[in-house]
């Protein structure tokens, strides 16, 4: 339970999709002129992330990881299909977005009318693919956490676009220097908001690691994991040999 809570708050505030890793910036900048459209797109992102991250987790676990095909039989234990992750993840996302669109249109026309135009856009929103790739890179251990990660990253993105849309609606009344108007000031405000979100960094663990260092640690754990895998593989072959000897 505690790890769910930690992941939830970490993905919303500390590793916020927009402010910490700049994912989904294109739609974030393009669709944040009005609060109502921003809410529609934000809701669609939460929904699609909540569906695709667990799905891609299953794909990663049972198809892509080094040795993931072992459920087919011991002779498949050496297969490593992880180089296919990009193409499989994006295919899952594109099909899921189409499916979600069809289902929503069928069962809830009112929701479809409010989300409808944004759903096709989402297939090429980097926040969605980014969610799945980060899920893979951070090695989320089980499907419950993957679902949690998808939904909470979506909520973080939702908060960000809601905040910037509200600010942009108000900033129309301010006297911004002409060359900065529109895009320029939006970038700078987002940067300032990002600095604000950096202060959440020490919220959970008490350490003040900047995101760069967090990236490094994930890299290290990946190395460690590779080492562990090697060791495990060796152990397996040893036990396998022992079994044969018996």
């Amino acid at each position: 339970m505690l790890e769910h809570l930690e992941l939830f708050f970490r993905s919303i505030f500390i590793d916020n999709m927009v402010f910490a890793v700049f994912l989904g910036m294109c739609s974030y900048l393009a669709v944040s002129k009005r609060v109502t459209t921003a809410v529609g797109l934000g809701a669609a992102v939460i929904f699609v992330l909540g569906v695709t991250v667990p799905l891609n987790w299953l794909l990663d676990k049972y198809l892509l990881q080094d040795g993931a095909l072992v459920w087919l039989g011991p002779e498949y234990a050496d297969y490593d299909l992880s180089f296919l992750s990009f193409i499989l993840f994006i295919a899952t996302i594109a099909t899921m977005v189409q499916l979600v669109e069809i289902v929503v249109e069928k069962f809830s026309p009112s929701l479809y009318n409010s989300l409808g135009i944004f759903l096709p856009l989402i297939a090429v929103n980097c926040a969605i693919l980014g969610g799945s790739l980060f899920m893979q890179a951070r090695e989320i251990p089980n499907i419950g956490l993957a679902l949690n990660y998808g939904i909470s990253s979506g909520i973080g993105w939702f908060l960000a676009i809601l905040a910037i849309a509200a600010i942009r609606e108000k900033i129309r009344y301010s006297n911004v220097p002409a060359p900065l108007r529109g895009l320029g000031i939006t970038f700078i405000i987002t940067g300032l908001m990002g600095i604000g979100f950096q202060s959440f960094g020490g919220m959970l663990t008490g350490d003040n690691d900047p995101p760069e260092e967090i990236q490094n640690t994930t890299v290290e754990t990946k190395e460690e994991k590779e080492l562990k895998k090697e060791i495990e593989a060796k152990k397996e072959t040893i036990s396998y040999n022992e079994a044969i000897n018996k």
């Binding site: 402010f19 910490a20 890793v21 700049f22 220097p177 002409a178 060359p179 900065l180 895009l183 320029g184 000031i185 970038f187 700078i188 987002t190 940067g191 300032l192 908001m193 990002g194 600095i195 950096q198 900047p210 995101p211 760069e212």
Partner: peptide, 18 residues
């Protein structure tokens, strides 16, 4: 070095260009 600085640098590039 922190990520938000990139946004501010791009904002300034836009400012200069415009």
């Amino acid at each position: 070095i922190i990520p938000p600085a990139a946004l501010i640098v791009v904002g300034i590039i836009i400012w200069v260009q415009r």
